[in-house]
Simulated scan of single mutants.
Amino acid sequence: MTLPTHMDDILKLAEETGAALAPLAAGVDAGLTDGQETYRILRDAGLLGLLLPREAGGAGLGYGGYSRVLAVLGAHNGAAALGFNMHNVVMGALADAAATPLPPAADRFRSWMNDEVVRGRKLFASATSETGRGAKLRGVRTSYTLSEDRETYVITGEKSFVSLARIADYYVVAARAEGTEGSSEVSHFVVAADDPGITFGTVHSMSAMNGTSTATMTLDHVPVPRSRLYLGVEGMSLFKLVREPHWMIAGYTGAYLGIAEAVYRCTADYVAASDARAGSPVLQQDLGRMSARLRAARALVHEAGDLVDAERGSMEANAMVHAAKYIVGEVGPELAHDALRICGSAAVSRSQPLERLIREVSFSSVMPAKPHECLEYLGKAAVGVNLYDARAFAW
């Protein structure tokens, strides 16, 4: 499927895809079905290549446009949007290098990955988090060695909370060279779901976001050909994150903005369904307050995304994406609180989508970067700390 390249057409495709995903959300949330059909719809829509360059068959979408698309999907099916983002966190760094001349090995890797996504419709996911460390790269315990012929890496470790477990075709695994505990040099490798030595634990039954199909991944001496070293370079992952943190720390932001939009929409529909409620000045003011908060969050997310596209890696762009992640994480639960107060029993009935949305929107604070990390980053930036120094922040 050829993706549209005009933003209005891309948003229309996202809206159509979101409408197809929406009916699946309740069943997956309740554990009645798995997420396979959700991700089949995303594959068939062609959206997996959204960030890849047009010459490779993608839409060439930047970070700002992507945030808008993710919000559209999130408003229909939050868990699907989060799972889709796990694919694009991986694609984002590749897309950032789209116009950059690369050494032969890195160029071959880029071409292979583009082809797997666009023509093979392969789904990728990130496997970074570890128990006790979260998604922080510094101190990652998963390790690798290089074979004597220097053609194969062997990876050993355990990843926690891996999204798209048993659904993705490939997982991009963060690991450090064996014997380099605490080092800033972290690498990423692409492992296939069926590579020998990979096993998944039971998919977690969570209070929300079951559609992300999250489980523990164990890597027991998994052999990975040298060609699947991400962009052909060892040891540069943390330095990329420090310079350009938008994908890792704020890729989720659009999804949670979309869920917040859905919370507001459900609340407004509830009020509008009754002439008495719709005519109440008190409820009108409540909806006005919700609308103002949501508009402010949306404007900040859009501004941050556009700034990343214009000045990727600048200190102001990096600060803006942290600010946007923090504000969306604050506004979503605030809107949920308002919805509970306004809608009452309609907000807590399992038969209503608002109940699920209220549970889901609170998970923003769990995803990186967490609220206190966003504030610390912004505070350090305010007093002039050099945040390009990997030692200045707990990455």
Score class of each variant (00 low, 15 high):
2 T>M: 15
2 T>E: 11
5 T>P: 06
12 K>D: 06
13 L>E: 03
18 G>Y: 03
18 G>D: 00
19 A>W: 14
19 A>Y: 08
24 L>C: 04
27 G>Q: 09
36 Q>I: 08
43 R>L: 14
43 R>H: 12
44 D>I: 10
51 L>P: 00
53 P>L: 08
54 R>F: 09
61 L>N: 04
65 G>L: 13
67 S>K: 14
75 A>D: 03
77 N>E: 10
80 A>D: 02
85 N>W: 14
86 M>T: 00
109 F>N: 01
119 R>T: 01
124 F>R: 03
124 F>M: 09
126 S>F: 13
132 G>I: 00
134 G>E: 00
134 G>S: 00
139 G>R: 03
139 G>W: 07
140 V>P: 02
141 R>Q: 04
147 S>E: 08
150 R>Y: 14
152 T>D: 05
153 Y>T: 00
154 V>P: 07
156 T>W: 12
159 K>R: 11
165 A>Y: 12
168 A>L: 08
170 Y>P: 01
183 S>Q: 02
184 S>I: 12
184 S>T: 03
187 S>W: 13
192 A>F: 14
198 I>R: 08
198 I>M: 06
203 V>R: 11
203 V>F: 05
204 H>L: 13
209 M>R: 13
210 N>H: 07
210 N>M: 07
212 T>K: 10
218 T>S: 05
220 D>E: 04
220 D>Q: 09
221 H>K: 13
230 Y>K: 02
235 G>C: 11
236 M>D: 07
239 F>Q: 06
241 L>G: 00
242 V>I: 07
244 E>A: 04
246 H>Y: 15
256 Y>P: 08
257 L>C: 09
258 G>P: 03
261 E>P: 05
263 V>M: 14
266 C>K: 07
270 Y>V: 02
272 A>T: 01
273 A>H: 07
275 D>H: 10
275 D>C: 12
279 G>S: 06
282 V>A: 09
285 Q>R: 10
287 L>S: 10
290 M>I: 03
294 L>Y: 08
296 A>M: 06
303 E>N: 06
305 G>C: 03
309 D>R: 13
309 D>S: 12
310 A>C: 09
310 A>K: 15
312 R>N: 04
314 S>I: 00
318 N>S: 11
323 A>L: 07
327 I>W: 10
328 V>R: 15
331 V>H: 09
345 S>G: 09
351 S>I: 01
352 Q>P: 02
354 L>G: 01
359 R>G: 09
363 F>N: 05
365 S>C: 08
366 V>E: 11
367 M>Y: 13
369 A>L: 13
370 K>R: 07
372 H>M: 15
387 L>T: 00
388 Y>H: 14
390 A>C: 06
395 W>V: 00
